[in-house]
Design a protein around this nucleic acid. Sequence first.
DNA 1: ATGAAAGCGCTAACAA
DNA 2: TTGTTAGCGCTTTCAT
Lengths: 349, 349
Amino acid sequence: MTSKRHRPATIIDVARIAGVSKTTVARVLAGGEQVDPTTRARVEKAIATSGYERNHLAQGLRTGRTRMLGLVIPDIANPYWADVARGAQDAAEKLGWSVLIVNSDWDRDREDRHLRALRQGRVDAVIVNPAGPSPDMLRTLGCPVVLIGSGGEDFPEFSSVRSNAHQGVQLAMAHLHRQGHATPALLVGRTRPAARARFLGVVHDVCRQQGIAPHSLAIEDTDYSMAAGHAAMRRLLAAADRERPSAVFAANDLMALGAMTALREAGLDCPRDVSVIGMDGIAAGALIAPGLTSIEKPRYAIGTESAGLAIEHIEGRSAARHLVLPCRLIKRGSVGARQSTLLSRRTRA
Amino acid sequence: MTSKRHRPATIIDVARIAGVSKTTVARVLAGGEQVDPTTRARVEKAIATSGYERNHLAQGLRTGRTRMLGLVIPDIANPYWADVARGAQDAAEKLGWSVLIVNSDWDRDREDRHLRALRQGRVDAVIVNPAGPSPDMLRTLGCPVVLIGSGGEDFPEFSSVRSNAHQGVQLAMAHLHRQGHATPALLVGRTRPAARARFLGVVHDVCRQQGIAPHSLAIEDTDYSMAAGHAAMRRLLAAADRERPSAVFAANDLMALGAMTALREAGLDCPRDVSVIGMDGIAAGALIAPGLTSIEKPRYAIGTESAGLAIEHIEGRSAARHLVLPCRLIKRGSVGARQSTLLSRRTRA
DNA sequence: ATGAAAGCGCTAACAA
DNA sequence: TTGTTAGCGCTTTCAT
C-alpha cells in the first residue's frame, strides 16, 4: 500500500507514469520536437492525470531566465503609474511574461534597494522610472534596462520610452488658438525646476512656431496641487496691471481644477468668461461640470512599449532605442470660443 | 592568466575568495549563528569584494519558499484595487516579501489561469478577490489562500478580509440623521443583484436600529455609473407623487457625483436644497465643489491585513481567520443640516 | 527517437 | 566551529 503524496507532481512523476525518461517529458513540455506521436500522447496523458505543472523556479535556475520583468515606479496607487503598470502587464502577459511591480516613492535609496533585490535572480530585465540619476547602479545590474519618463534620454545607453511633451503642448496651444485664445496665461509648478524649465521651453518653441511672442503669455508660478492652482487663479484675476486672460493653460490637471474652482467662486463662467485646459487627463476631469479639457499622456502605451522593448533586449534583438509617444487632446467643456471683448465686458458687469 | 568572469558571483566564488566552504558562507548569509567572528569577517569581506548577491531562484528551489505573494485583483488601473495592492506591497515588503500582481478583469477564466500560473513555483500564497465562486480551484492550489472583498466569507475554510458594510452604512445613515435627514432617498445599482440585496439589507437593518421604518425610504434603482446616477436623480426630482427628498444616499460615489450634477442642472443647491452622500471615497470627491461626503472603505488596510494573514499562514501560524475592517466617514460639503420646509419652499420658488 | 548524466546555486542533514 | 554530501526540479549535452 503506497502512501499518497500531497506534494505537487514533478517531471519525474510524469515520466514514471508514462513509462519514459524525464528527458522525454521535458521534450514534450518544450513543444516537443522529435518525439514519437505515440510517446507524446502517453506523456500528455500522464501530465493530465498527475496534474503536473512546470516548476518555474527550477526552470529558471537551470536556464537563467525567469520570464519576469521588474517594474520600478514611484507609486502604484498613483493612477498615472497604475496605468503604466497595467500596460506593461498586458504586453508582458501576451508574450508569456510576468511583471513584478515595486514602489520607489520617489526615493533614490528605495529605488536602489529594489533594483538590487530584483536582480537577485528574480527578473530578466527592469523597467524603471528613475527617481534620481544613478547610471552606475543601472549599469552594474547586469540585465537590460528600459527607462521610462522624462529623464529617460539622459542615458542614451539604455532604451527609453516617454511621452512627447512638445507635441502635447502644441496640441493644447493649437486648440486654444483655434478658439481664439492666442495668449493664454500659464500655470506652472515651481517645485520641480527641471520640469518647469522643460515645460516653459516647449511652450516657447510652440509659440514661435505659431507666430506668438512668447513673452506675451502671463506666467503664474505655483505648485502642482489643486489648492495652489486655485490660489494662482485668484492672483491672476486680482492682478490690476493686466487684463483678465481669456484662457488658462495649466501644466497639470490638478492645478486646472483648482483654477476652475477659483473661477466659479469669482462668479465667472468657464468656459464663457475664461477657458481652462490642463495636462494629464486624470479621471476627475470627466466628472466635473464643465468637463476639463486636457492633454492626455500615453500612459498605457508607455507601459506596453517599455515591456516590449525590455523583452526584445532580453531576447537579444536590437540595440538601445528611444521611443517618444504622442499625447492626445481630450476635448471637454472647459475650453470654448472666445467671446468678443464687448460681450465679455457686458456679462461681467 | 585567468580570464575575468562576467557572470554574477555565486556562493562558491565567495567561499573560494574567503578560503572556506560554501556551507560557511551560507551560514553567514543566514544571519550566521555559529561562525567564528574571524571567519565571518573574512566571508563578509569576500561577499563585498565579489559583489555577491544571493540567487533567490536557487534558494527558492531548495527551500520550497519564494517569499513571494500572488495578488489576483480585477484591475490594477482601478484606484480601488491599486490602493489594496499598495497596502499588500507595503506590508509584504516590511517582512521581506514581494507581491506579484495580476489582473483578472472580473473574468473567471483569466482568474483561474492566473492562479495556476502563480502556483507554478512562483509564489507561496495567493490573495484573491474571487471573480466567480470557484472553491475547487482554490482548494487544489495547495498553498494558503486569502480572500478579499465581499464574497470572502462564503468560504469559511479560507481566511478573508473585507470592509464592514454594515458599519459603513450605519455611519452614513447616522450622519444624515444628525443633520435632520432621517429618510434619505437611496440610489442603488441593480446590475449586481447580490450587491444590491446586501446593500438594501444592511440599510434596513440600520433603519430598524435607528427606529426608522425602512419602507419610508425611496429607492431608485439604477446603475453604478455617473450617468446613471444623474438620470436617477432627475427621476427623483420629477416624481410628482412624493416630496423632494432632503437627502440622497448613493451606494457609490460615481452615482453620487451624477446626482450632484443633476441637482445643479435643476437649479438646486447642494447641500442647502438636497444633501448627498456616497460610498467609496474616490479621489474625485475631494476635487469638486462642494466636496462629496462619503463612506471610505479601508482599501489600504485590506491590502496590508491580507498580506499579513497570508504570510502568517505560510509560516504555519493560525487557522483561517475572517477580518472585517471598519469604514470611515469623510465629511465634506455635500451634506448639510436640513432646512425647515418653509425655508426650502421659499428658496425653491 | 529516447535515455543517462551532469549541473544551475543553494540549503540542510550529517560528520568531523 | 567547519566541511562533506545529497538533492530541490529542471534543461541540456552527449550517447545510444
